[in-house]
Each structure stands twice: as structure tokens, then as C-alpha cells.
Simulated assay, not measured.
Amino acid sequence: MTEAVPSWRRRAISVAAMRELARAALPRPVFDFADGGAEDELTLRRNESAFDDIDLLPRPLSGAATRDLSVDLLGKKLSLPVIVGPTGLGGLFWPDGERCAARAAASAGTAYCLSHGSVCTLEQLAGTGVSPRWMQVFIYRDRGFTRELTERAATASYDALVLTTDNQMLGNRERDLRNGFTIPPRFGATGLAGMALKAEWLWRMRKELPRITFGNYVRPGEASDIKSLAGRMSQLLDPAMHWGDVDALRKLWTGPLILKGILHPDEAKMAVSRGVDALIVSNHGGRQLDGAASGLDALPAIVDAVDGRIPVLVDGGIRRGTDVVKALALGAKACLIGRPQLWGVAVAGEAGVARVLEIFAQEIDRAMGLCGVTRIDQIDNSLLLKQRIGQGS
């Protein structure tokens, strides 16, 4: 007897559809926590609209009966050029959300990056055995804590360290302010009255909400509630970080070191000269500096600056397989997704993230076939309409 297809899966025909399913499933403050950006959200919107300024120029007579979506990155072969990027508090959207997403990424044959602000600890994530797994760190005022997280990641055999550089001050995320967003979420009588349609989320999370915390920041003998830890995290951020801190981290971490948050080509050149192994062109999903360039708009200059010496990745606004193809054509080695995997985990946990990655794989494969491309390394700027490239960047 054929097993019935879940109703959510029948409706999850695209990443945009998954977003709407997540909107329906989550309380508004929780949905907006993932979905929102900084201030007027100009950069958030530009992250997506930048892809509209790039046109593909297919060559269907090249012949592409079969397509290979795999890519070699930092000594690992990935089944597709889409990586699950770091997003905080995945466990707020589904019980054990980070490990659900990591297992989905591993099943799809791609990498997963754990956020510093995850609910589970980095050791708990490593306990799943998923690979490749990356760990996100910051440069903190307490450099000893940066060292501590780095050493823990090494002990837990993480495959790469991702130093995020654009979170040295917290962005002004006005949706969260308007919603009075708190963690764990608290709802007054009026709010609770309007929660009937979110009953499934409330029931699913009933045991999780009181225990949600930032797992990697819990220390023996110190307060472990999320309010205390959130305050400590904000105090740890250091706007005085500098290249000397990157040098120190490079000496400490012997595996692949990736810098995330690069938008300026001069910083890309500096990173190469200091032994960084890869870059992620990123504006933190439009959640930090509103008005910052989109990742796609900044990408070509970064690629030129690096000149093939290290791989360049990009994130921000990637919602379609064609977005991935356009980014690769502009010189990216692979793309990272943040919000799409959170929408997936909010809808169906591991199965939801698996569906998001499946959608990307299907759309990339279709785009490659229609463009006459059989391998990822054949995707270059010859697939792009040049006039539009100049207008959009």
C-alpha cells in the first residue's frame, strides 16, 4: 500500500511555498525573528532582487542529457553546491532543530555549519556523526572564549571553522522590537487568545520552550537561562576586533579557516595574504548594516580580488536553483542558505530541510539541463547576458 504524502509536502513546491507554510506554522514573533532584517530591510530585499538583474543566456544545443551537481570544496566532495549556513536558535523552530537540519544536510551530501548561537552544543551536534560539519565562531572581547570554542571544535573534529566578521555590533532588527520578541517567547492573555492556529507548534515545543538556551555558552556554575546568556553574548561582541585576531585564530586552528561577512575586495585580498582558506561573501542576511551591498552585487569584485587563489562562497537571498546557477556563473564556488532551511525545519523538522535541499537540487539540475551544462565547473559567465551584468552590479 502506497504511503500517503503529507499535506505539507504536496504544498511545498518551492522555497517560497515553504516560507508560507512556515509563516502559517509559527507564532508571528518567531517567524519574524527568522524572516526579518535590520531597520528598513533595504539590504534584505536587495539580497533577493539582485538576482533579478542577472539574465541567463542558455545554449541548449550544447547537449546535457545527464548532469553532475557535485563540487569539490576544501578537500570534500559535496553532492550539490548548496550548504546549510549558520542560523541561531534552530531549536526554537522545531525540537532539536539543529541536529534535524544537520542530518538532512548530510543525507543530501552537503555541508552543515552550526551557529555559535545554537540550542544544542557543538559536541551534541558532532555526536550525530554528520559530515562535513563546520563551526561558526566570533572574535569576542574575551579572547579566551574565542580560543575555548575553537579548541572545542577541534576536539569535536569539525571539518572547518567559520569566523563571522560582521556581527561585532548587534544590528537594529526592528521587527523583533515591534513584536516585543523574547526568548523563550512569552505571550500575554491577548497573544494567547490569538494562538489557536499555532497549536501544533505550541504542543510540539511544550517541553522545549522552558529549556531553550544557547548551548555553547553554558558554563558550569554560571546562570544558564537564555536571558542571562543573551546578555552575556551581547557584552562579548567586540567592535575593536582586527586582522591580528584573524592571525591568532589562524595559528590556533589548523584546519580550513573560512571568513564570513566579506563584502570589500581589499578585505578579500588581505584574507588571502593571511592564509585564510575560503571566503563567504555575505551581509548577514540583511540583519546587520541596512544599506550594505547584496552578496551577489559584491561577488564579482571579490572573485577578481581573490583571482582563483581560494574558493569564494556567497549567501543572501538565494531562493531558487537559478539563483545558485547565477552565483556560480559570477564566480562563486558554492552558496549557503539560511532562512530557507529554517523555514523547512519549522514545517517538518528534518524532512522539511530535506525537502528544501531537494528543491534546490531539482531546480539546479533543471537549469543546467536547459542551459546545456553537464557539470558544475562548466557554469561560468558565458551563461550570462553581459549587458545586464553591468546594469545590475
Score class of each variant (00 low, 15 high):
Gln391Ile: 05
Leu74Gln: 09
Gly255Lys: 11
Ile318Leu: 07
Arg375Ile: 05
Asp52Val: 09
Val84Pro: 06
Lys198Gly: 04
Gly91Lys: 09
Met18Trp: 00
Lys207Cys: 05
Phe33Glu: 01
Val30Glu: 13
Leu89Asn: 09
Thr155Val: 14
Arg178Ile: 09
Ala271Ser: 12
Trp243Pro: 01
Asp377Gln: 15
Arg375Glu: 14
Leu42Asp: 13
Ile364Lys: 03
Met18Val: 15
Asp247Val: 04
Trp343Leu: 03
Asn167Ser: 14
Ala301His: 11
Gly88Pro: 08
Ile183Cys: 14
Met1Glu: 04
Gln288Ile: 09
Arg173Asp: 10
Val82Cys: 08
Leu313Val: 12
Ala101Phe: 02
His264Trp: 09
Gly308Ile: 11
Gly188Val: 05
Leu177Trp: 13
Lys260Glu: 08
Met233Ser: 07
Val137Ala: 14
Leu92Arg: 12
Pro311Phe: 12
Gly129Ala: 07
Asp377Cys: 14
Leu384Lys: 06
Leu163Gln: 07
Leu279Glu: 04
Ala105Ile: 10
Asp380Leu: 10
Arg309Glu: 15
Ser14Gly: 07
Ile183Gly: 08
Gly295Gln: 06
Asn381Leu: 08
Val325Ile: 12
Ala223Phe: 03
Ile139Cys: 02
Arg287Leu: 08
Trp343Arg: 01
Trp8Ala: 00
Glu20Asp: 11
Arg309Val: 13
Trp253Leu: 07
Thr110Asp: 04
Phe181Ile: 15
Glu20His: 05
Gly37Tyr: 05
